[in-house]
């Protein structure tokens, strides 16, 4: 009874003593990692979470309102600056992508040059492209000559038809000046005139192989390659036959060929300066003297003049 009465009379002091004792005990024992601490942490976290969410929301709304009112001009100017920055970054990105594409093309060209040790090739850059006629950045001073062959890793591009001191013109398979001796890769079949040529219009990119015998086996999908009679190394892809046309009772057929190289998307190409004959290459004795100029092997272009004109005095 006496203790109860003492506690009732000195409730504040008892409370102080109890709370102080508990606090001191907690301090002395270092109960930061105790179950009580963890439980309290959870309670504080749970009760504090909505408060934190509310606080974040209030801060965002306050900042937004403040910025909208007081920093409107600054934000507008920042927006303009960001637009300029975005434009510059887009230009940089486009430049980087262009460099990456050029890098890929050059790697492919290097692989092609390594894969064709028979050929002495000179890389050239396309500086102009007009109606199937390409202008390249190298000319007579660089050793370029007429009727030299121009190729890429994907196949035949065309022939050098005109040479200047520092530039040259290349007639592609989309130009009427370009005729290339060709054969069907599957059965080595040649046409009667033995060439593939542009079919006559500047707006039709398809070239043709004329004078195919009715009895010869030619199908759409056949791959057409350069023949050994060509100034090109034999076997380079020219294109793919898309359609074989009958000529209504005649003995000939003709085929439309889709070229394997589109000259309108070219940036670089190779001019074949010299080639090694296959027999010497297979024999292994490839010496510099044994190189021959590609032009020396080139057959003359088919003479399409009428016989009267050719035989005229």
């Amino acid at each position: 009874m006496a203790i109860t009465r003492f506690m009732a009379e000195h409730r504040a002091e008892v409370t102080l003593a109890t709370l102080s004792f508990l606090s001191l005990a907690s301090l002395l024992s270092g109960t930061s990692s105790s179950i009580i601490q963890r439980g309290l942490t959870r309670v504080v976290s749970v009760t504090g979470y909505p408060f934190l969410v509310l606080r974040t929301g209030v801060e965002e709304v306050a900042h937004y309102s403040f910025d909208f009112v007081w920093r409107y001009d600054a934000l507008r100017q920042e927006n303009e600056e960001n637009k300029g920055l975005k434009a510059r970054l887009q230009a940089t990105l486009a430049h980087d992508e262009e460099l990456a594409a050029e890098n890929r093309r050059l790697r492919d060209m290097i692989d092609f040059a390594r894969a064709e040790p028979r050929l002495s090739q000179r890389p050239v850059r396309i500086i102009e492209n007009l109606r199937g006629m390409l202008t390249i950045d190298q000319g007579r001073r660089h050793g370029i000559k007429r009727r030299m062959a121009v190729v890429t890793e994907h196949g035949v591009v065309g022939l050098v038809t005109e040479v200047h001191d520092f530039t040259a013109y290349v007639a592609t398979l989309h130009h009427r000046d370009c005729r290339i001796a060709a054969m069907v890769h599957r059965n080595r079949l040649r046409a009667y005139d033995g060439v593939v040529k542009a079919n006559g219009t500047d707006y039709n990119y398809i070239c043709s192989m004329d004078f195919i015998d009715m009895k010869n086996d030619v199908r759409p999908g056949d791959i057409v390659v350069t023949s050994p009679e060509s100034i090109f190394p034999p076997g380079l892809p020219i294109g793919t036959i898309s359609v074989v046309h009958e000529t209504g009772g005649a003995l000939w057929r003709w085929a439309e060929i889709i070229p394997s190289v589109d000259p309108y998307v070219l940036d670089e190409a190779y001019v074949i300066m010299r080639s090694v004959p296959d027999e010497q290459f297979l024999a292994g004795g490839v010496y510099r003297d044994s190189y021959r100029e590609a032009t020396s092997l080139a057959p003359e272009m088919p003479d399409e003049r009428p016989i009267q004109e050719r035989l005229a005095p």
Binding site: L19, L24, T31, S32
Partner: peptide, 26 residues
């Protein structure tokens, strides 16, 4: 009041439990 508030302060500040409680209670 000091005990309740001190608990929250101790827990939130990751101090040893009782640090703020003791001060506020006294």
């Amino acid at each position: 009041t000091g005990a309740l508030g001190g608990i929250y302060q101790d827990v939130a500040s990751k101090a040893v439990l009782g640090h703020n409680i003791l001060c506020l209670v006294i």
